[in-house]
Amino acid sequence: MARKLLWVVAAIVGLISIAPALIVIPYAFSESGFLDFPPGWGGWQWFEKVLDDPTWGEAAMRSLKVALIATGIASVFGTAAAYALVRARPRFSGMIVGLLVLPMVVPIIIFALGSFALGSDLGLVGSIWTLAIAHAALGLPFVLLNVRASLQLVDPSLERAARSLGAGPLSAFGRVTLPLILPGVLSGAVLAFVLSFDEPVVALFLSQDTDPTLPVKLFQTIRLALEPTVAAVSVMLLILGIAGAALWWVTVRFGQRRLRAAAASVPEGV
């Protein structure tokens, strides 16, 4: 009985959380050029229109580039920061974590405004690198927190053992610690990627109107007219998103298994 109730609640919560995403699907196949209800069946025309218009593809490529650079920066620096915090235990480590996680809690509009002010002072607004760096700052907390959690499960004497066995400091990290925290790094990186890829606010401030990222282009299009092309793009993103989530799930599964094996290899009583 309680189990059934749980299922019902879960189904309702699930439905509510994905309904806004699912509702766009019928409109992507709309018959008319507006978001009319009921949408009717207009076939794949809006998808064709999106694929025919090069600016959509360009925007998608731009977003991909920004997200990849941002993910790279966030992963490297987030991992390095987590490593330093867990292994070296600096005196104010709690405060340092708080500081690095700040972009996650500051309202995005404030963060965007700040980045814009800083970027325009330095004359850097409009470059995808500036946007990527700002996005990296947003993604870094996810990497930091994920890596920190996995690093805390890794026995520090493993790296010392590697050193005593003939590995230099970098080799010891790369061959022993990194493989063990890789699931944490990867799930942090996936989150940082997704965050950057569909982040419109900071992107709106930091990119030029003529070369928008995908979320900015969606926003521009909606502002002009509620065309079903927007719904078609959304459906494509939805499919990519589901694929991404599946990938994330796989890495987490893989990671759990590996970490469990790592924990089990410590003899009992230690």
Partner: peptide, 12 residues
Amino acid sequence: GMMFQSYALFPH
């Protein structure tokens, strides 16, 4: 050569 209390075998 060094042996640690926890053995420090590489689990992966």
